[in-house]
Write a protein that binds this DNA or RNA. Structure first.
Length: 121
DNA sequence: ATCCTGACCCAAG
DNA sequence: GCTTGGGCCAGGA
């Protein structure tokens, strides 16, 4: 497979369904979150340019999180939204990156990532 | 087209 | 802290 030129890539994106463009934007934003930091679903959605799509961010991570730093996306206020074992795994992964918790929630004051330009403040 | 669901969010009480 | 209700949107049945 030859590598696509930027122009070809752009063209391919335009032809692609909207959902694919969104997902691509979500993946890109998710990958911008550095180790030891987290962002909320709403933050990722907004930073990707789709302010009302926080639920879809979750859907994407659910589908193909394995190929992404999915553990760095949490609910508003630092809540872990995964249930049961999955939730424990996310917490463990984050703690392994040095993220600290206050009770059930991630210490957002310490670890919330700020995307440059985007997202309030 | 309708109905249901979801790793959501937020304001209320 | 909690629960509830409403809002949001696309995808699948």
């Amino acid at each position: 497979m030859r590598r696509l030129t930027p122009r070809e890539a752009a063209r391919r994106l335009l032809r692609a369904p909207k959902s694919a463009q969104r997902d691509a934007a979500f993946r890109k934003v998710n990958r911008q979150i550095p180790r030891g930091r987290v962002a909320t679903y709403a933050q990722v959605a907004a930073a990707a340019g789709y302010p009302l799509y926080h639920r879809h961010v979750a859907q994407l991570l659910h589908r193909e999180g394995n190929a992404l730093p999915w553990q760095r996306v949490v609910g508003a206020g630092g809540q872990i939204k995964l249930k049961y074992e999955a939730g424990l795994e996310q917490r463990a992964r984050l703690e392994m990156e040095g993220v600290r918790f206050r009770g059930k929630r991630v210490d957002m004051v310490e670890h919330q990532h700020r995307f440059k330009g985007w997202d309030w403040e």
